[in-house]
């Protein structure tokens, strides 16, 4: 079978569809979701729509959408940082909002003045990924002494998904301008990236599902024990 066809099937259908798993569990428990999970749910929906528009633009209108990733980087960073602003202590909110503003400004400068050709934003996206990795590590440090089973905390799954995706993808984000032309090895790199993305979505789905189970357990507890 043609590897290009297989890749196309994987990248254009399977990976975008895998986003439906977390969306399904998120919408199932949407009414009881805390703000962090609501933002995460919005992020998955927005990024899926972005991906859909991107695919339509490429295959229907033959548009080269590489520069769109600059805009997506700002959106992605904003959503993920907002998620952590709701997870961390309230005192971190203002610094995180400031970080979003500064990062957005840097990304815009990069898009307009620095990496303004048909190329990936290899300066800003790795920086964004590094900051998100830092936020994930901060969360792990904060919760390392929490007296509960790791698997019982729904956000642990989400955090693991984010950490795996951004650390696994960091090197690809940095060197993505080296493989603008589609070769077999380039496709392999994108396949690895897409596989990590599927892992992230599965972990998000587990997180949303776990949250739903926690809620059910709480609501089935007699009121006097609450």
């Amino acid at each position: 079978m043609n590897p290009l066809f297989l890749y196309s099937l994987f990248a254009n259908y399977l990976v975008p569809l895998s986003a439906l798993a977390p969306i399904f569990f998120a919408l199932k428990n949407y009414r009881s979701l805390p703000p962090a999970f609501e933002i995460l749910c919005a992020f998955i929906i927005v990024s899926s729509l972005f991906n859909l528009v991107n695919l339509i633009a490429i295959y229907q209108y033959h548009v080269r959408t590489i520069r769109w990733i600059h805009i997506y980087t700002i959106l992605e960073f904003t959503f993920v940082t907002l998620v952590f602003s709701r997870v961390f202590n309230k005192k971190w909110r203002i610094p995180l909002y400031a970080l979003i503003a500064v990062f957005g400004l840097i990304c815009t400068i990069d898009l307009v003045f620095i990496q303004n050709k048909l190329e990936f934003n290899t300066y800003t996206r790795p920086v964004g990924a590094l900051i998100i990795i830092g936020l994930c590590m901060g969360y792990i440090i904060n919760t390392s002494t929490v007296e509960s089973k790791w698997t019982d905390n729904s956000f642990n799954w989400v955090n693991t998904g984010l950490l795996l995706y951004y650390s696994g993808g960091l090197i690809m984000f940095t060197f993505s301008n080296y493989f603008l032309k589609p070769t077999l090895l380039t496709l392999l790199i994108w396949t690895i990236h897409n596989s990590i993305l599927i892992v992230e979505y599965i972990l998000f789905a587990i997180g949303f599902r776990k949250y739903g189970l926690e809620e059910k357990a709480i609501s089935s507890t007699p009121i006097r024990n609450k």
Partner: peptide, 8 residues
């Protein structure tokens, strides 16, 4: 590309 795959 191989180096990037290994690193990833």
């Amino acid at each position: 590309a191989v180096l990037i795959i290994l690193a990833m």
